[in-house]
């Protein structure tokens, strides 16, 4: 009889653990907040989770390709300040569209800068994106030195309250992301991505365009960061150059909780989306369970560490038994 250990299960279904985690978190949240699935509550939760989901998807591409991008928060900040300063509280819808497109270009450009240094000049990803994050946050502070500005109230309201067919807008966006991911996965680019993340040297030997795959993952990450920036600007309605910085590490945590290994080549985009949702729900649980404010950070961090340690613990004890 073939032995089915937890390890083989998780290799076969990388999203198994993240799904379990998401369901457990959902159940706890449901217990604490019984009206969670009411349209209003669901929508108000999802619109808060969406920016991190977008960021985690971009990060997932980079990590799958064997890199890491810690400049994403900086890109979010740039986009936020661009929209807050150039659209303004009294801007028109057309202006908003123009600057949203500008933002996407800026995001892609920032990603291309990362990609240039990492893929073409072959610098180490962590330290390079750390350096560029200074450039990006600096630029955001240059555009908007003090928090202020914003986008028109009507546009922010549109993001906050749109629920086509009674389903929050965020679900449509996540569905579109998943469809696109399914398509990408089936293309040559998709298989190259896994090959490069698994072992770049071997991929190079077999004529995979390693440099361009690496480069493109950073551009994708830049684009997704710009989208996250647009989403968070619509959520907050105002500008703040420091808005993105705390999101970087959350995005990486979301990817890892989602079962995508930091060493690259294992995982996908579905897991990180669930990871981002799980992080959001954990935050929800903490605010609803009325923990002493002083303990909040500790409890949240401990839950995350336990979530990260759980697969390893299961493996460890599984091995002892057999």
């Amino acid at each position: 009889m073939r032995k089915t250990s937890w390890e083989t299960l998780t290799t076969k279904y990388p999203a198994l653990f993240s799904t379990t985690l998401l369901i457990v978190a959902l159940l706890i949240n449901l217990y604490l907040q019984p009206n969670m699935f009411a349209r209003e509550t669901l929508n108000s939760n999802m619109r808060v989770f969406l920016p991190l989901v977008l960021l985690a998807v971009g990060q997932a591409f980079v990590i799958l390709g064997g890199g890491i991008d810690i400049s994403v928060g900086g890109i979010v900040s740039i986009v936020n300040t661009i929209l807050a300063v150039y659209v303004g509280l009294n801007g028109s819808i057309e202006k908003m569209w123009i600057y949203m497109i500008v933002s996407l270009f800026v995001g892609a450009l920032c990603g291309a800068i990362n990609g240039f240094f990492i893929a073409i000049l072959r610098l180490q990803p962590i330290i390079t994106t750390y350096a560029t994050s200074f450039l990006y946050v600096g630029l955001a502070l240059f555009i908007l030195p003090n928090p202020g500005g914003g986008i028109p109230q009507s546009i922010a309201e549109f993001y906050r309250t749109t629920t086509p067919l009674g389903i929050p807008l965020a679900f449509y966006i996540i569905a579109i992301l998943l469809v696109i991911w399914r398509y990408i996965r089936s293309t040559q680019f998709g298989s190259y991505l896994y090959a490069v993340g698994g072992k770049a040297e071997a991929a190079y030997e077999t004529a995979v365009p390693v440099t361009w795959i690496h480069f493109s993952t950073y551009v994708i990450s830049g684009l997704m960061s710009a989208m996250a920036g647009i989403a968070i600007t619509m959520l907050s309605g105002s500008g703040n150059a420091e808005i993105g910085s705390p999101m970087t590490l959350s995005a990486i945590t979301a990817v890892v909780i989602g079962g995508t290994a930091l060493s690259g080549g294992v995982g996908g985009v579905t897991g990180p989306i669930m990871g981002a949702l799980t992080l959001g729900i954990i935050q929800n649980i903490i605010s609803f369970s009325h923990i002493n404010t002083w303990w909040e950070t500790f409890v949240k961090a401990t839950i995350i560490v336990i979530a990260l340690a759980a697969p390893g613990l299961i493996n460890l004890f599984g091995r002892r038994k057999s």
Binding site: R122, L123, I127, A131, G138, L139, V210
Partner: peptide
């Protein structure tokens, strides 16, 4: 110098320094 420019200069200097000898082996 204002904080914004200071950060950009720090980032750029770091990039230049690691570009000089932080490069990994080419494939």
């Amino acid at each position: 110098i204002p904080d914004s420019i200071r950060r950009m200069v720090l980032g750029a200097t770091l990039l230049v320094m690691i570009s000089i000898y932080g490069r990994q082996r080419g494939f």
